[in-house]
């Protein structure tokens, strides 16, 4: 097995997903299939190959420090499940 049910539960918690028992089992099975498939890559010898973070050769894509118009607050809030007309509303959070 490439992944355990405990790891699936942990990843679910990090992603704020609530999974019940059968779901954990199903996800473990599916993720295991995916990971096993991807694990094929491990068979390639990468000794001496530089770590690749980007596949393109482009570097230094910059913009100049200029202010552009922002959205209207109504537009910014348009997709919010709840708002008070000025801000997004979320369940009370105390950090």
């Amino acid at each position: 097995m490439k992944i355990t049910p405990e790891e699936v539960e942990r990843v679910a918690a990090l992603a704020r997903l609530q999974l019940d028992g059968p779901e954990v089992e199903r996800m473990t099975r599916q993720l295991d299939t995916i990971l096993s498939y991807v694990a094929k890559l491990d068979e390639i010898d990468t000794q001496g190959v530089e770590v690749t973070t980007h596949t393109q050769q482009v570097v230094n894509a910059f913009r100049e420090d200029e202010v552009q118009p922002s959205l209207q607050p109504e537009q910014a809030l348009a997709n919010a499940p709840e708002d008070n007309g000025a801000s997004f509303s979320v369940p009370r959070i105390i950090r």
Binding site: R63, V67, Q68, S70, L71, Q72, P73, A76, A86, S87
Partner: peptide, 18 residues
């Protein structure tokens, strides 16, 4: 990463973009 203003103290959510 975008052209929104960084001005402090503006009314809420007036300096946002996609």
């Amino acid at each position: 990463f975008c052209g929104c203003s960084t001005e402090f103290g503006a009314p809420p959510n007036t300096h946002t973009c996609p």
